[in-house]
Design a protein around this nucleic acid. Structure first.
Lengths: 199, 199, 199, 199
DNA sequence: AATGAATGAGACTTCATTCAT
DNA sequence: CATGAATGAAGTCTCATTCAT
């Protein structure tokens, strides 16, 4: 019937980006249900009808947004840790990069959490994609003897949980980079938690 | 208008509990917005109007529910760890108790997360109350030399993050108690992360 | 089926009066629709169900109230003018009595006006009963040559209009007895308007 | 949320007028509370949601309607009496114009009276605006020696009361222009009531 | 490619009334 | 005589989506 809209023009792409940016703000501030399509289009500075030229429905823009933010996050982390051999150093840098990402995307948590009630799959995909990459790296580090042996999947989710909760507590709620002692204690915890027995 | 409705009879209390239980199911399955008051009352087996005899609004029953579940969780954990002196043992038992609580309250995560978009305060209160109690225990254990020194608050949030994410990944999403290796790896991580330098 | 309730006991009559008094306040303050039966019973200090022991419906208590207030008003006016022979003097006294009645029944206007939308007949009855008695008196005064000849009905409604609007403007809206000059001007107007040609 | 809806297109203005006209009929026939928004939109021949494009709430359309009818009435009266120098002649013409206005706006009384229970201010404004203009004219006529000295405000409200009650009794309730004798008696009353002592 | 007026389904909430106690 | 918990009909208002321009 109606093909999924994928405007090819540059002008169209600009409009699409404006809508995504507006949606991020609206979903973050008001939540998915309270954010109306009209508030999104107003913020984007386009007409209400224009929305449906780019997204088939309000749910779809949330899906697109979660995928987009997931990609950005993974891209940022990948860039940050590129070339780092030492695994614990990599963890530290990755953690810092995540915190910084949160600082620049205050709406990340709320957008992703809302997705759960709109499309459970997209929500799981967001975390699972992250976790798979994370676990793969840890598995390799286990192979190198850089970190403690064990279920890499479990380590990945545990580390994600730590980052998530500290990000929530300090960055999202208080708008701070976590204080130095918090960071120190956290790394102390992670480092000893991961360091192999004999080292 | 704004009289807090509180029918105090025994019959009334039964009705209130039925509504809370129905709301937990509805909010868990459908999410706050998709769950209609009428679906809650139908599930509770009472008339629509009855709802408003016990809760001033749909938002209020969510608030009540989050507080209720928070209390139940804290009560369960407190019971589980009662009398345990050794801190790492306490962590293990507490963690297991949390996992078990998740298994019995599959809607916990979804209910609590929804609260964020209805009443941010109640959402924060849920975690902060948990974290404060957790941090207090850790502080004491640091004093005893049972665990590594550091910012107890940071340790608490990190440990909560680990439990939360493993609960999400294994219990909520897959309906399992985490496999033995996962538990083993996780505790290995926690134990070494917390154990003091010299031990 | 259910006979119109007419409790014979003294205790019952007390309750009925409490309900009528409460209804007068509620209908006056909030208007018929905004006034709930439960607010009336609360104010009367009786249970909600008790209401229906005395009045078949919310509309019925308004009907009863309008009839009641109409009777009181007519009774008050009748008492006030009793024995006065001179018609203009009677008008003055009656007018003053009406103003005083308004002062003591601030809700009169609002209660009566609401009746119009609940039961047009009771509303008309209120004014027509008043007007008939008024016109009869004027007719007689015309016969005596005390006032100008003419359609007594028209005179009655005109005089009622004057009293009503001055009562609204000064008593109901401002809570005052109309200032002396206002009263003087008004009577000047009425007196000359009614005095027969030759006098 | 609270943007005042004001579609400015010509098509929009037509829709707005249709809604106002429909509301006048509905409020007049059924009263404010019994008149549902959906009955108004049905009568106007538009969709239910369209209502809220033009009026923020059901209360607001009543406010707009009362203001609108007040303006129309004042405009009609102003036109009718334009250029008339002799004050008593002006009163007669104005009175007739008012009666004619009532005949063409059978819902005027009911619409205005309802306003009292929705927004007391708009109700008072309606009468006060009328009364101020009326009193100003009377004051001037007093200055010219055309009418009896006195509190012009009191005269204005008395005259408004007369017109209102005769309009109610004959036009609104019976659908008639008041019979000739009624008009004659009324003017006789007014004329003598206003004519200065010595004339 | 863009617009924004129009739509109508659907949800929360209130409240008159009933009835078992 | 009195009560108050329970009911369910009904109404206001929001908002995603469509379509003619």
């Amino acid at each position: 019937m109606s093909d999924l809209p994928q405007p090819a023009t540059a002008r169209g792409e600009v409009t699409r980006q404006k809508l995504l940016a507006a949606a991020e703000l609206e979903f973050g501030e008001r939540g998915f249900h309270a954010a109306s399509v009209s508030s999104i289009t107003q913020r984007a500075g386009v007409g209400q009808g224009t929305f449906y030229l780019y997204f088939p429905s309000k749910e779809d823009i949330l899906r697109a947004l979660v995928r987009h933010m997931g990609q950005e996050l993974r891209h940022t982390l990948t860039q940050a840790i590129e070339g780092i051999e030492e695994r614990l150093e990599l963890e530290r840098v990755g953690f810092n990069a995540f915190i910084e990402f949160c600082r620049q995307h205050k709406n990340l948590y709320r957008v992703v959490m809302q997705a759960q009630f709109v499309d459970e799959d997209i929500y799981r995909e967001y975390y699972q994609t992250l976790a798979s990459a994370y676990a793969a790296g840890l598995k390799k580090a286990q192979g190198n003897g850089q970190i403690r042996q064990g279920e890499a999947e479990a380590q990945a989710w545990a580390l994600m949980g730590i980052a998530h909760f500290l990000g929530l507590r300090y960055v999202i709620w208080e708008g701070l980079t976590p204080p130095a002692e918090v960071m120190a204690t956290t790394f102390d915890f992670i480092a000893h938690g991961l360091t192999p027995e004999g080292s």
